[in-house]
């Protein structure tokens, strides 16, 4: 399910005091792809994604979710189906856990959208398995779990509603490396299951590894929409101007380019970067100065 944003503007307040947050946004969140939304704090990312499931209504323009059009005039009653189709995982979703057991917490969403207990339980169990929560935890209180486990339960709560699209706001923030990796795997699984995924992230290494399309926001406007391989070819100054980091392998490669190295393609990982460096150096001629040698590497 694609989401089309057409001439979207959004402001708080009215008249002289109106504060413009989004200005003339046009973009398509492609069906079955991972779209990353990046930009500095205050650039409008969070406001933008809240339009994807009609948590906010446009001040101007429209948002087309599947076949449903949302404008400033759309009635509250018509928004239910939009919200059922687009699941939203906020930052630190574990803060929204509330039920007395893990299973009940995950069942809440599907029940809220009209499933009976039996259906909701089946959906909840499936979602818990998908996020890797073992059955032994299902009857535990969510508040007895570790931070990483709570995050998974919260994710399961959204998955259990089986939305066509899912929006994640910094889903890996605060997780340890293993937790981050699992989460990125989950996003890829969702894509493989033909879900539409939208991801807000400050971590450009993740964006490069995962995204099909990157939307760069600045001052409430779209500054660029490109595939990551294209975007990160831009020069360093552009990223400074937009307060964005570069993925680490890319930043390092750009440094080396100032010293005579050349990269055929954007290095996507440490391994990729190392391979491209390897073939540019005559390693037989490389000797280690005494001050830098210290014996066997695997000591």
């Amino acid at each position: 399910m694609a989401i089309n944003i057409e001439g979207l503007s959004f402001h708080y307040g009215a008249g002289k005091n109106a504060k413009q947050i989004l200005d003339d946004i046009n973009l398509t969140v492609e069906a079955g792809q991972i779209t990353a939304i990046v930009g500095q704090t205050g650039s409008g990312k969070s406001t933008l994604v809240q339009h994807l499931n009609a948590l906010l209504l446009p001040s101007g323009g429209q948002v087309v979710v599947g076949d449903q059009v949302v404008t400033s005039k759309t009635k509250e009653k018509a928004l239910g189906p939009v919200r059922a189709q687009v699941g939203m995982v906020f930052q630190f979703p574990e803060n929204q856990l509330f039920a007395s057991t893990v299973l009940e917490d995950v069942m809440y969403g599907p029940k809220n959208f009209g499933k009976n207990d039996e259906e909701a339980e089946a959906l909840a169990k499936e979602a818990l398995i998908q996020v890797g929560m073992k059955e032994e935890f299902w009857q535990h209180s969510p508040f007895d779990l570790s931070g990483g486990q709570m995050r998974r339960v919260a994710l399961a709560g959204v998955l259990a509603m089986d939305p066509q699209a899912m929006v994640f706001d910094e889903p890996a923030a605060g997780l340890d490396p293993k937790g981050q990796e699992e989460l990125l795997d989950l996003l890829q699984e969702l894509k493989a299951a033909q879900k539409t995924v939208v991801l807000i992230s400050h971590q450009m290494d993740q964006v490069l590894a995962l995204a099909d399309q990157v939307v760069v926001m600045q001052d409430g406007r779209v500054a660029a929409i490109e595939a990551p391989d294209q975007l990160f070819l831009r020069d360093r100054q552009w990223f400074l101007d937009h307060a964005l980091d570069l993925p680490e392998p890319v930043a390092f490669a750009k440094d080396l380019e100032d010293h005579g190295y050349h990269f055929d393609h954007l290095p996507k990982s440490v391994t990729d970067l190392a391979e491209q460096i390897k073939c540019q150096v005559d390693w037989d001629r490389v000797t280690m100065p005494n001050s830098l040698t210290g014996g066997d590497r695997d000591e």
């Binding site: 680490e248 390092f252 440490v270 460096i277 390693w283 280690m288 830098l292 040698t293 014996g295 590497r297």
Partner: peptide, 15 residues
């Protein structure tokens, strides 16, 4: 990152 890269190269200073 820098340690990962250094270990992925054929030779690198051992520190």
């Amino acid at each position: 990152f820098e340690s990962q890269l250094s270990q992925a190269l054929p030779k690198a200073p051992n520190q």
